[in-house]
Amino acid sequence: MARYVRFQSSDSINVFLKKYPQSSIYHKAYKLFYDFEYLEQTKDRSIAQYQRFLIQYSKNPNVYYAEKNLFAMISELHIADSIYTFIKKYATILTQQEAWKLLYSISMKAYNKQELIRFLEHYPEYPYSDVLLKEISLSDIQLFAVKNQEDKYGYIDSLGNWKILPIYDDALDFSEGWLLYVK
């Protein structure tokens, strides 16, 4: 005769797990225990609950969802300090990259050299600092699209030196103060 077990909470599953360690549904019950635990501990779906869950229930496999949900909520705030705290305390490989990129994008207002330097000073552990350092080193160089005698375009600096060799049939300027966006 088939026997049915109905669980209503992580506590009831926990009792079952302790009582029937040899049960054929032990592993299924264990997974269910974690699911219940996650739902119970994050029932308000608040930032505080997700933060607490990530710290106190780090062994629960559903920390994956807690981290994703916490990051989504923190992202909506668009507050640099909150994102930075998230990176330092809660982010794993799952969200770290996106969190850093978000922090970078909301920190950049004018996108000038001073701002880039300030960002690196403020967040020295920024994982893409090599890209920023390159941007900083290039920010003083203005490049102009120029056509040579063979009707090929390249880029020269303000001293007239070729910085990008003339191999193109057409070229637009690196217009200072503008960025390109693909729709």
Binding site: S105, I106, M108, N112, G177, W178, L179, L180, Y181, V182
Partner: peptide
């Protein structure tokens, strides 16, 4: 490709 003036939109 849309040109976006810096400071007006995200520098991304």
């Amino acid at each position: 490709f849309i040109l976006i003036k810096k400071g007006k939109r995200l520098p991304i």
